[in-house]
Simulated assay, not measured.
Amino acid sequence: MNFARTKEEQDRLEQIGELAVRFSERAGKIDEAGDFPYENMEDLKKAGYTTWTLDKEFGGKGISLYEFLLYQEKIAEGDGSTALAIGWHMGTMMDLSTRRPWNQNVWKEVVEKVKKGALINTAATEPQTGSPTRGGLPQTTAVFENGQWVINGRKTHTTLSPVLDFILVKAYIPQRKKVGIFLIPKETKGVSVEETWNTISMRGTGSHDLLLKDVRIDEKYFVETVDPVNNQSAGWLLHIPACYLGIAGAARNYALRFSTEYSPNSIEGTISDLPNIRHLIGQMELELLQARTFMYAIAEKWDRSESKVELQAALGAVKHVAVNASIRVVDAAMRIAGSKSLFFENPLQRYYRDIRAGLHNPPMDDAVIAMLAQKALDGIQN
């Protein structure tokens, strides 16, 4: 089912689809080597995609959340690692364009470089705190000294680290007993990357450790104060479920092609004629239809809503539903393909590994269920 609503969205989707085909051709080698998809990132930059979530007044296309998810899902059909990685940059720029929390001059400095291909992401996760959505205080520290901020610490899961130009670092400020966000240009002295990303899933995201040793930045680069416990609604984080639905869609497409081509000599025709295979295909279609319809409905509601905080529980629910549905789709696809799906040259085994990573992206399943329960109980009490 095509969720593009206008000709403009369809045209852009086709443009991204052409890139996704290229990404698919490279995905196996990137996964096998655990390499970063440098060519894919360059293709996205050349297409101008990395600026699409910027407001039009800043030189972007000002695409909606709904549109953003369309394109992210399509990229993920080609390569999940590429989609998840670029999604953090795209979502960050969408968020900042909407909220505009920074000093105007600093914002313009970043925007001008982004328009020329610069990439940005936030470094928040740490070995001792785990996911920042749990509310733990960062052990990375920022101390104001002689007119500059001095930052020290280690961040894990720094996606896009091989190609980042700007890093937004969350750090604890002991002098103020607050958590701040600091904008650090990648080339700043004391910034380095330790290549620790050696996982079985999403091997191409380049989510290595970021090391910060006596990093000194100007006062103006303290861009925002945040509350580590109060996780605000963030529609752009739906790029995460969009990614996993894209991977599931790729698995579904492979399984459909396989079922219409594979004809063992024990039957007439292909296995697509068998009732058990048709049942699995129907299950895949139902899972994807439900999850995608839910995601795009909430995205459209987000784009139109004036009270976005009311959608926080729904955003979490989308991620929970989409990831778990995607896992079931990939499982069904592998049942259709049988043991062939376990061979390294078969993309289904990569989809199987990549899709598991969704369980560990925020928000976590238990947190979503707890949030929905609390919302229901609050509704009764009110």
Results as ranks from 00 to 15, higher is better:
N346Q: 08
I336S: 04
R350N: 09
A367D: 12
Q312G: 11
L315C: 05
N361Y: 08
I336Y: 06
G338I: 12
P362L: 03
D365H: 08
P363C: 07
P363K: 06
L348A: 03
Y351P: 00
H320C: 04
P347G: 05
H320D: 04
V330A: 03
M364C: 07
S341G: 08
L348M: 10
V329Q: 02
R356N: 08
A357D: 03
R353I: 02
A314T: 04
V330F: 09
R350Q: 13
A332M: 09
D331I: 05
L342P: 02
H360R: 11
A322I: 04
A325Y: 06
V323A: 02
A333N: 03
V323L: 02
A367P: 00
P347C: 11
L348S: 03
G316N: 04
A337R: 04
A313Q: 07
F344Q: 13
G338M: 10
R356K: 12
A332K: 03
H320W: 10
L348T: 01
A332N: 06
D354F: 07
Y351R: 08
R353H: 14
N324S: 04
L359G: 00
D366R: 13
Y351L: 04
L342A: 08
P362S: 09
P362H: 07
P347M: 08
A317G: 07
G338H: 09
D331W: 12
S341L: 02
V321P: 00
E345M: 12
G358Y: 01
G358M: 03
L359I: 10
E345F: 13
D365F: 11
F344W: 14
D365P: 10
A337N: 00
M334I: 04
L315H: 08
E345T: 10
L359H: 07
G338N: 13
R335D: 06
S326M: 04
P362Y: 09
A313I: 12
D365K: 06
F344C: 12
L315G: 01
I327N: 02
A322C: 14
I336V: 15
S341Y: 03
Q349A: 11
L359R: 10
Q312H: 12
A332V: 05
N346I: 05
L348Q: 01
I327R: 08
L315V: 11
R350P: 03
V329M: 05
